[in-house]
């Protein structure tokens, strides 16, 4: 366990030094912020999905709750940013408790489907109400926080990094506390856990609320960073699925799996989206600028990138069911 604390500290120190090497490079900073965000979201999901084995398919609801609460409060009032984020945590926790009350009576596929249903209700409600900007979304302008330059990338890089490190620390604490052993017991066999006197309902809800609160902070930071939110950006089923996919590809139930998954999937998605993959082939001399392969990539990769993403998903699930970390560790689920 000490080794893992050292790991988190090393990671935090190394990641915190990245901006000093990077210099003024907003594009790469943007990708790194997205990576940190996805890593934090996947790690947060991992607390309830990985440790407690409750595969929530509706985490976008908590992310969106944070994003919407913060955006609404910031545009409608002069409440300071940290309080807005706090209100976002509260909103997400409430939705989590409500969700828990409904879905934790169910198991397996029923649980997965019910968590989707709750998240869809949240999405459609935000889509239909006036206060959330409805289908038009919310544009936030002119926000200030102290004397931070919110047009630059650094505040958001460090905010997301802080959130990720906090999430990792909480994961480690939860994992090695009494609660953590209860959660593992629940994951392995709910009925056996119940017969040992573990209060299933209490511990599952606790894991979900912690997870939701962390996800909501990611949502709040996202909203202030992008300054525009709508339901398809922050409450979609696609986002919920991406969070799970990130965790699974990295290694579910492990501390570093979600981080690894985020690093790989975010860079892959961006390389495909922007056709950097094709450029890489040209620059490394494998194909030439004029070759038909490059012109095909240039014209079609943008069309095909989601397809490639799908193919990689299928290959990973079929060949690496325990994620990439599963390759390196025999006993990853201890």
């Amino acid at each position: 366990m000490t080794k893992q604390w050292t790991g988190i500290a090393t990671f935090a120190a190394l990641a915190a030094s990245v901006p000093f090497f990077l210099g003024d490079n907003p594009y790469i900073a943007d990708i790194l912020i997205t990576m940190l965000m996805m890593a934090a979201l996947a790690s947060a999901w991992n607390i309830v999905g990985g440790y407690a084995g409750q595969f929530s398919f509706g985490h976008a609801a908590y992310f969106g709750a944070g994003a919407y609460t913060t955006s609404i409060l910031l545009t409608a009032s002069s409440i300071a940013l940290p309080l807005c984020i706090g209100a976002g945590i509260l909103a997400a926790s409430l939705i989590a408790l409500l969700t828990g009350a409904i879905v934790f009576r169910l198991r397996g596929h029923y649980f997965a489907l019910a968590s989707i249903a709750v998240a869809e209700i949240v999405r459609l409600t935000a889509h239909n109400l006036e206060i959330t900007g409805g289908a038009q979304g919310l544009l936030i302008t002119d926000i200030t926080f102290g004397n931070l330059d919110l047009n630059s990338k650094e505040p958001f890089y460090f905010a997301m990094l802080f959130l990720l490190v906090t999430t990792l620390a909480i994961s480690l604490l939860v994992r090695h506390s009494r609660a953590g052993y209860f959660l593992l017991a629940i994951r392995e066999d709910q009925d056996a856990a119940a017969s040992l006197g573990i209060n299933l309902y209490l511990w599952k809800n606790m894991a979900l609320v912690i997870s939701a609160a962390l996800a909501s902070v990611a949502g709040s930071i996202y909203a202030v960073y992008i300054r525009f939110i709508d339901t398809s950006a922050v409450l979609s089923l696609r986002l919920s699925i991406e969070i799970i996919l990130t965790t699974i590809i990295g290694g579910v139930g492990t501390l570093w799996g979600p981080v690894l998954g985020a690093a790989l999937l975010v860079s892959l998605a961006e390389a495909l989206r922007s056709n950097l993959a094709g450029e890489l082939l040209v620059n490394s001399g494998i194909i030439t600028e004029a070759s038909p392969i490059e012109s095909f990539l240039k014209n079609n990769l943008a069309h095909a990138h989601v397809l490639v993403y799908g193919i990689i998903t299928v290959l990973c699930i079929l060949n690496l069911p325990k994620g990439i970390l599963g390759l390196f560790r025999r006993k990853q689920r201890t």
């Binding site: 990671f11 594009y27 690894l260 860079s267 450029e279």
Partner: peptide
Amino acid sequence: MKHLFLALTAALTIFTTL
């Protein structure tokens, strides 16, 4: 951990070395 940093570095290089 080691693998993680390797992967992170690999991911970073794609975007920086081009």
